[in-house]
C-alpha cells in the first residue's frame, strides 16, 4: 500500500527537507576495507560513480535527505574505515546508531566471510534489535562474482537482516535499498515508541528523532 516517492527519493541537499525533517536517523556503514562503502555514499549523494575516492581514515560523515511515503527523512550517514585496526574506534559509534548498513563485496569471498565478524560487533556494541541492512555491492562485476546471491540471502534470513545486492558503480539498487531501510527504521522507531509509552497507540506519524 506504500509507494516510494522515487523522484524525491534523494532531493540532493534540498534545504527545505533538511530544515525540519519528520524523522532523523543515524546510520552506520560498516564492512571490510574496499567493499565500496564510500562509493555507495558518493553515489547516493551525487548520483554518479567516482572511481577516484580516497581510503577512509577513521570516520566520514554525510547528511542525506529523503522523501519516502510523503514524509521527510534525514539520514546521518557515518562512513567508517574498514581496516580491523580502526574497529576499536568505530565501535563506540555502534551505540549511537539507529540502523546499520553492513556491506560486503560480491567479488570477494573474504569480505563475505567477515560479515559474521561484523555481526558479532553489532551484537556487542549496538542496541538490541537495531535494524541491519546487508548489502552485497559490486553487482556490475558479474564476471568476478565469488558470492552467489543465494548465499547472501540465506545469511540474511538466518540473522533476520534486510538484504539487497547493489552496485555503487551502476547505481543498481542504491536508492531502493536505502528507501527500504528507511521504512524499516520507521517501523522500528514506532515500535520503540509504542513500547516506551506502554499504552500502544496506532502507529501514527510522530515528530521526533532518536538522537
Amino acid at each position: 500500500a506504500v509507494t516510494a516517492d522515487r523522484a524525491g527519493a534523494a532531493p540532493r541537499g534540498s534545504p527545505e527537507a533538511s530544515v525540519d525533517p519528520d524523522h532523523l536517523y543515524n546510520v552506520l556503514f560498516i564492512g571490510d576495507s574496499h567493499v565500496g562503502k564510500t562509493s555507495f555514499l558518493y553515489r547516493l549523494h551525487a548520483n554518479t560513480f567516482n572511481p577516484h575516492l580516497t581510503a577512509t581514515v577513521g570516520l566520514d560523515y554525510q547528511v542525506q535527505n529523503f522523501v519516502v511515503d510523503n514524509k521527510r527523512f534525514a539520514l546521518r550517514l557515518w562512513d567508517s574505515a574498514g581496516q580491523e585496526r580502526y574497529h576499536s574506534i568505530t565501535k563506540q559509534f555502534f551505540r549511537k546508531a539507529d540502523g546499520v548498513v553492513l556491506m560486503y563485496d560480491i567479488t570477494s569471498e573474504y569480505s563475505f566471510s567477515d560479515v559474521r565478524y561484523w555481526l558479532s560487533c553489532i551484537q556487542e556494541g549496538a542496541e538490541n534489535g537495531v535494524p541491519v541492512l546487508l548489502l552485497g555491492n559490486k553487482t556490475d562485476c558479474t564476471a568476478e562474482r565469488q558470492v552467489p546471491a543465494e548465499e547472501g540471502e540465506r545469511l540474511a534470513k538466518e540473522h533476520q537482516l534486510m538484504f539487497f545486492e547493489c552496485s555503487a558503480a551502476s547505481g543498481h539498487n542504491v536508492s531502493e535499498s536505502m528507501v527500504s531501510l528507511i521504512r524499516l527504521l520507521k517501523v522500528h522507531e514506532d515500535e520503540l515508541k509504542n513500547k516506551a509509552e506502554e499504552v500502544p497507540k496506532p502507529p501514527q506519524k510522530k515528530k521526533g528523532c532518536c538522537w
Partner: peptide, 30 residues
C-alpha cells in the same frame, strides 16, 4: 593469507598481508 612464515597471529597478519596496501595505494591522492 596467514601462511607467511612468521605468522603466529593470523588476524594481525591479515592486515599486514600486504593485500590491503595494494588496495590502498591506488586510493592515495587519486
Amino acid at each position: 593469507e596467514g601462511e607467511c612464515e612468521d605468522a603466529g597471529f593470523s588476524a594481525a597478519d591479515r592486515e599486514a598481508s600486504l593485500e590491503l596496501i595494494k588496495l590502498d595505494i591506488s586510493r592515495t591522492f587519486p
